[in-house]
Design a binder for these strands. Structure first.
Length: 285
DNA sequence: ATCCAGGATAGCG
DNA sequence: CGCTATCATGGA
């Protein structure tokens, strides 16, 4: 820990695991720094570390930290709503303390737009490349972070510059989506007032945004905690655990099952299963 | 070297 | 509707 320039603020957090939350594949720009993590919340450079049930942080006030990390979510109640079965209980234990954080809508949308057919590690690489090339440098003491560039910034970029950020075929989608947001075709803030179905329909208009990415944005940026993104991992979990023996379960069937079985906090269920399986699948065999 | 990754999309029957 | 090829890039 190094709080040379600023004295840290402190906060008691009964049920929260900072490291798991930041490494569970919902947010991609936080990096280990001293004993904690350095990153940006919006345009604020933040350092945060966890010592037992205590959070120590600089760069943001307490209300922002509580909001961003969703420390107000009733986690105990949420976890208790999970179905009671062996696979779920394993994930519940392994992923204990993960919260679904409240990300700024644009950086969440843009980051998941670049996630198609990419490993979590590579999504991080892309996120950092875009932030370093187009974002603002946020310096605070020995901590350096970069903001995510606004839609207007990326809308003005050349395709070749985005390709250089290792985006591959996703570059043109990010560029076109940034332009659609920048020129007002779609108002991301207006989506907050809409139902999940209406907001999803709007997001699907954006190039490169299909149902899975739209659901990620609804869950990670718009607090729709019942929404379940079904990616390759969740499809694998569902078919191997809940459809053992069957072969070839269609995605629409998996969706139907999940919607009926996982309850009001299905998005949380999904995150706990995703984290558990992604990090233990090889060892399990 | 070959396969696969927090997918989307057009083209096909 | 359901299936398939294709789209870049890098890590295992």
């Amino acid at each position: 820990m190094n709080f040379s320039l600023m004295s840290p603020q402190s906060l008691l957090t009964p049920s929260f695991d900072l490291e798991k939350t930041l490494n569970s594949g919902q947010v991609f720009h936080w990096v280990p720094h001293h004993g904690g993590f350095a990153g940006a919340i919006g345009d604020k450079p933040v350092y945060i570390e966890q010592d037992g049930q205590r959070l120590l942080f600089t760069g943001a006030d307490e209300s922002l930290v509580v909001r961003y990390f969703a420390l107000d979510h009733p986690l105990h109640e949420i976890v208790n709503s999970f179905p009671n079965d062996p696979a779920m209980n394993l994930a519940k234990e392994y992923s204990a303390g993960i919260r679904i954080i409240r990300q700024p809508a644009w950086e969440c949308l843009a980051t998941f737009l670049t996630s198609a057919m990419k490993q979590v590690l590579h999504i991080r690489t892309i996120s950092h490349a875009i932030r370093q090339r187009f974002g603002r440098r946020l310096q605070s003491g020995d901590l350096c972070a970069f903001s995510y560039p606004a839609p207007e910034i990326l809308a003005a970029a050349r395709l070749e510059q985005l390709v250089q950020c290792k985006l591959g075929f996703r570059a043109k989608n990010l560029l076109a989506t940034a332009r659609a947001i920048a020129n007002g075709q779609i108002d991301l803030e207006a989506l907050r007032k809409l139902s999940s179905e209406e907001a999803r329909y709007t997001l699907l208009q954006l190039p490169g945004v299909g149902e899975k990415i739209a659901n990620c944005v609804l869950l990670f940026a718009y607090e729709r905690l019942d929404v379940i993104p079904i990616d390759v991992w969740i499809a694998r979990v569902l078919s191997e655990v809940y459809f053992k023996g069957h072969n070839k379960i269609s995605v629409s069937e998996l969706k139907r099952f999940a919607a009926n079985y996982f309850g009001a906090y299905a998005g949380y269920v999904q995150q706990y299963l995703f984290h558990h399986w992604r990090l233990t699948y090889r060892k399990r065999g």
